[in-house]
Design a binder for these strands. Structure first.
Lengths: 200, 200
DNA sequence: CCAAATTTGGACCCGCAAGTCCAAAAGCTG
DNA sequence: CAGCTTTTGGACTTGCGGGTCCAAATTTGG
């Protein structure tokens, strides 16, 4: 039953997801028309519903997962190696660069807000992303504590939560105002603040 | 031309805006049906299009402005009087309380993300809100600097930007994950950090 | 090369919700 | 109260876009 999916089928499915993702980035989640996805990917209704029997909802979920994974991938290898201050700054630079380039086109922004109302699946994807993200930051802080670069009495989990929130807000403000200033301020001040703990 | 609007008319218009705002909070911006607003407010299509000739878009813009104003009002009188550490903490508590009570029902969340794409009017409303909000925080920091409670070498504008971003991200994470932890962490750590500058 | 399964194309259906229209009711002004 | 304007109700139109269906083409495996 669930078997099948020729190499060709697999390719088509992937093409649809990627095309839909692009469409979401350009028009926003709730402005996506299936027709446009079909046109962009050179596929037909039949194919779309063949690979995503539950239609739009299932497709958007696949897109969300795809984009969520991408968010973390884009931060590698820095995010998983926050083991020195230069590494932290390199990560900072990567974030700024990435979001500056991305500009207003945030694939997840629709999800973030609506997440509570939309499919519970979307909720899970976003929560999972945030959890992994925060976990990576926490690990970075812990590592810096092990080398004495951050004071041992800092609550790593809590500090990571604050930093993650700052990043999300910074991106949100970038989307609303078009300025990167907030994201920059958060990253610089938070990292400085962590750094300062060791000098006390 | 632009005259008119009897007392009764004014009342009806306001009733529609308030009802629509409630609807937006409950279902999300893009799930709002005009029909529901009419039912809830006991009005008819004729009335809605009479007071909002441009229909849904114009109505939602009015709602956005209404809610944006409310966000700041809800933080008063604390936000405008960040003149002592107890005052800052009272503000912190108000924010936590307000967003905890509000939970998933964020009137602006749809706006925040989609803002770039939606009516340029929405963009302006959000930007305006953020600007006023950040301005109030900046002023609070400056005041604390004048009394020596925050070091003079802190860049007030930049610190306020970071704090505002943290708050936005904290709220966003509250909406996605249902946990207030991030918002709490941001507020506590940021305020502590500002406080620490004076003790150096 | 044949039969079964998968893939593809696209015409068609259908419901929903925004927006139009107009006539009736209510309010204002002199 | 007479004649104007504003307000109200709700039936009707309309277009958009998601989802269905099925027959034709292609691929796969033996």
């Amino acid at each position: 039953m669930t078997r099948a999916l020729t190499r060709k089928g697999e390719a088509t499915r992937a093409r649809i997801v990627v095309g839909a993702a692009a469409e979401v980035r350009e028009r926003g989640v709730d402005e996506v028309r299936l027709e446009d996805v079909l046109a962009r990917t050179g596929t037909s209704k039949g194919q779309l519903f063949h690979y995503f029997p539950d239609g739009k909802e299932e497709l958007l979920l696949a897109v969300a997962q795809h984009e969520a994974d991408q968010v973390l991938i884009d931060q590698e290898p820095m995010l998983s190696n926050l083991t020195s201050w230069p590494a932290w700054l390199a990560w900072r630079d990567r974030l700024i660069e990435r979001y500056l380039a991305q500009g207003v086109k945030c694939p997840l922004n629709g999800l973030l807000g609506q997440t509570g109302r939309r499919a519970p699946g979307a909720q899970a994807i976003v929560t999972g992303l945030m959890w992994r993200w925060q976990g990576a930051i926490t690990e970075g802080i812990r590592h810096m504590q092990s080398t004495g670069d951050i004071a041992a009495d800092v609550d790593a989990e809590r500090a990571a939560a604050a930093l993650l929130a700052g990043i999300q807000g910074g991106v949100l403000l970038l989307l609303s105002t078009g300025k990167i200033d907030h994201l920059e301020a958060v990253l610089d001040l938070t990292i400085d603040s962590l750094r300062a703990t060791a000098r006390t």
